[in-house]
Computed example of a mutant assay.
Amino acid sequence: MAGFAEATAVVDGRAELDPQWTVGGRPNGGYLLAVLARAAATTAHPHPLSASAVYLAPPECGPAEVAVETLRDGRSVRQARVRLSQGGRACVEALFTLGDLATAGEARFTAAEPAAVKPRDDLNRTPVEPPGAGIRITMLEQVDQRVDLSGPGDLRGWLSFDDGTPFDAFSLLYAVDAFPPATFTLGGNGWTPTLELTAYVRGLPAPGPLRVRQYTRMVTDGQLDQVCEVWDAAGRTVAQASQLAVYRMARS
């Protein structure tokens, strides 16, 4: 069974999209973003600092081509455009800013304390086939996800790898898209395909489960926005994201 690093590896412009990291048989959007980030990273700029991706078509599991275009390669940051394609069809395209998080230092100011969440042991692990979802979330075989339905349009909880692997800058890109849609508390039906996702990686996380809050600020008949905030085991903000996604109304 491949770990996350192996499942997101890119060698000579080719990736093997792993069926372990799927929702309804399709690769998760955060997982795909981590694949593209690995292709863009270099020895001098080893970590994604920001990413903005558009999801053009859902890829299949299996071989994919990953093309990297360097836009700027400076001393402190690198900027690149990365495209993932299958059979000549573009599936995901992203812009990255990369650098070295080890030199970032500690935060001088944060606007919010870590979200209040029930203790991890008080929450049940999310099943691979959640009741009422009508979809198999295979990636939940690889992660321990525990969700607190905090209120309308607001989910909070904990996330860790099942094998105990600590999170890094790349797997944080997965973490910001790993939780169920916030519309689960509003009558949403099934998964919400991502149209655009912007993520910031703010620090290298301390070992231990991540604390996650995901909430929506506006829902229409066809779309919603979602904001995701992630704190490490030391209570430090390590990732932030926002996305625009398709919203499916529950059937009466």
Score class of each variant (00 low, 15 high):
Phe109Thr: 13
Ser76Thr: 15
Phe161Pro: 05
Leu56Phe: 01
Ala133Leu: 13
Gln86Pro: 04
Gly153Cys: 02
Asp162Ala: 15
Gly153Ile: 04
Pro181Ala: 11
Ala102His: 10
Ala112Tyr: 04
Met139Glu: 07
Pro59Asn: 08
Gly105His: 12
Asp168Asn: 15
Val82Ala: 06
Pro58Gln: 11
Gln145Lys: 02
Pro180Tyr: 02
Asp122Asn: 06
Asp168Pro: 14
Gly74Lys: 06
Val54Lys: 09
Gly157Cys: 04
Val143Trp: 01
Leu95Arg: 12
Glu141Phe: 01
Asp100Trp: 08
Asp121Gln: 12
Cys61Leu: 07
Ser50Arg: 15
Ala175Arg: 08
His47Met: 00
Arg75Pro: 03
Tyr174Ser: 05
Ile135Ala: 05
Leu95Phe: 15
Val82Glu: 02
Pro59Glu: 05
Gly62Pro: 07
Glu106Cys: 01
Asp73His: 07
Asp177Asn: 10
Gln145His: 03
Pro119Ile: 06
Val68Pro: 03
Ala104Pro: 00
Ala90Ile: 03
Ala57Asp: 03
Ala111Ser: 13
Gly153Gln: 00
Pro127Trp: 10
Phe161Ala: 03
Gly132Thr: 10
Leu155Asp: 03
Gly74Met: 05
Asp162Lys: 14
Gly105Lys: 13
Arg89Val: 14
Asp163Gly: 15
Arg125Ser: 11
Arg78Met: 08
Asn124Ala: 15
Ala175Phe: 08
Pro130Ala: 09
Gly99Phe: 03
Pro180Lys: 08
Gly105Cys: 11
Glu60Tyr: 00
Pro166Ile: 01
Thr110Pro: 01
Gly151Gln: 13
Arg72Val: 09
Asp144Pro: 05
Glu65Cys: 11
Phe109His: 15
Leu140Lys: 05
Ser160Met: 07
Thr138Pro: 03
Ser150Glu: 09
Arg83Asp: 09
Val68Ala: 04
Ser85Asn: 03
Gly164Thr: 12
Arg108Phe: 14
Ser76Gly: 09
Asp144Gln: 10
Lys118Ser: 14
Leu56Asp: 00
Gly88Phe: 00
Glu106His: 08
Ala104Gln: 07
Arg81Thr: 09
Leu140Met: 09
Asp154Glu: 14
Ser150Leu: 05
Leu159Met: 11
Leu101Ala: 07
Gly153Phe: 07
Gly132Asp: 10
Leu101Arg: 06
Asp177Cys: 06
Leu98Trp: 06
Ala53Tyr: 00
Glu93Lys: 00
Phe179Arg: 07
Leu56His: 05
Ser85Glu: 07
Pro46Leu: 10
Ala178Leu: 12
Pro166Cys: 04
Gly99Tyr: 04
Thr183Ser: 08
Val128Asn: 02
Pro46Trp: 08
Pro58Arg: 02
Asn124Thr: 05
Gln79Phe: 13
Ala182Met: 12
Leu155Arg: 09
Ala115Glu: 03
Ala169Cys: 08
Pro114Ile: 13
Pro59Lys: 01
